[in-house]
């Protein structure tokens, strides 16, 4: 019995025909995403939030820092403040819009930096193997030994509060898991046959990483990074909530929550609003991450 009898081996012409008729990976990912109604709705909602926050001056009804002693902690609907006012009489709607700028920045910036730095480290570690791999991965193990919130608090607590230190602290916190994912996938792909073939045909390491490995690493990293943004928003707001993050008088959701903490005894609804924004935004990022995971068929 020949091999052809037991296993259906497609002929070369057949394979070419199928490849031409078939679609690329990213085309299929896009199609699957468009068919997923939940993820699509969430993505539109998220786009709306991002747009309103970035274009805050267009949507704000008041100056976010204009305070009034006569309009403190008013409920929604008070004299043109349709979401009410905070503890020094600033318009809550405008502050939530402006505050979202910093909250989103603290969510996206550390993750972007961590993906760039951690992703490169992971690719290098996974591709070179050996001593370089051990060196990078063992130093990541050290950072892994800190529970994530503790590491961010340690860095912010020692170096002092401020936007820059918050982003630095969160970046350092997120680098180890990103490195680990990039390293795992790279190590798996490195010994795959198509990489062997590329190497045998004389491709340089740079172009192997660029054309063969990066494509495989990108999916899992993208899915993970989206869920990291959700964690990053919660943690950054948490740091501000502790007084370790963004400093007053800037508006930021966590800081607003901190300032309104005492107000929970006076006007619970108003005090809870900034937290609800943190929740909605981070939930959106988590749902998008889940949608991407299904669409990209990624398992991490």
């Amino acid at each position: 019995m020949s091999l052809q009898d037991t296993i259906a081996v497609p002929s070369a012409a057949d394979a070419v025909r199928r490849a031409e008729a078939g679609k690329g990976y990213w085309t299929r990912v896009r199609e699957r995403l468009l068919a997923d109604r939940v993820t699509l709705t969430v993505m539109i909602l998220l786009a709306c939030i991002v747009f309103m926050v970035v274009a805050a001056p267009l949507f704000a009804t008041h100056d976010p820092s204009a305070s009034s002693v006569f309009a403190r902690l008013k409920s929604p609907g008070y004299k043109g403040h349709w979401l009410g006012t905070d503890e020094v009489g600033r318009d809550l709607w405008s502050r939530i819009l402006y505050g979202g700028r910093l909250s989103l920045l603290c969510g996206v910036a550390p993750v972007t930096l961590a993906v760039l730095i951690g992703g490169s480290l992971g690719l290098v570690a996974g591709y070179s193997g050996g001593i370089v791999n051990s060196l990078i991965m063992r130093s990541m193990d050290v950072l892994y030994a800190f529970p994530s919130i503790l590491l961010a608090i340690a860095i912010c607590g020692m170096l002092g509060s401020g936007l820059g230190n918050t982003i630095l602290a969160l970046t350092v916190t997120f680098i180890p898991p990103v490195v680990r994912i990039a390293e795992t996938v790279t190590t798996q792909v490195r010994s795959a046959e198509f990489v062997e073939a590329a190497r045998a045909s004389g491709a340089r390491p740079i172009s192997i990483i660029r054309f063969h490995i990066l494509n495989n690493v990108l999916g899992p990293i993208l899915v993970y990074a989206t869920s990291l943004i959700s964690i990053s928003i919660i943690l950054a707001a948490g740091l501000s909530f502790l007084g370790l993050g963004v400093t007053p008088p800037d508006a930021e959701w966590g800081l607003m929550l901190n300032n309104l903490r005492q107000a929970i005894w006076v006007n619970p609804l108003v005090a809870a609003l900034p937290g609800a924004m943190i929740f909605i935004t981070s939930m959106c990022f988590n749902l998008v991450s889940d949608g991407l995971r299904t669409a990209m068929d990624v398992r991490i």
Partner: peptide, 23 residues
């Protein structure tokens, strides 16, 4: 489950204080 991982738990604490302790 997804709400559990997306909730800022310090905010949940505040809301629970508002409901069970204040109101």
């Amino acid at each position: 489950a997804i709400a559990g991982v997306s909730l800022p738990h310090y905010w949940v604490g505040m809301v629970m204080v508002a409901i069970f302790a204040v109101v």
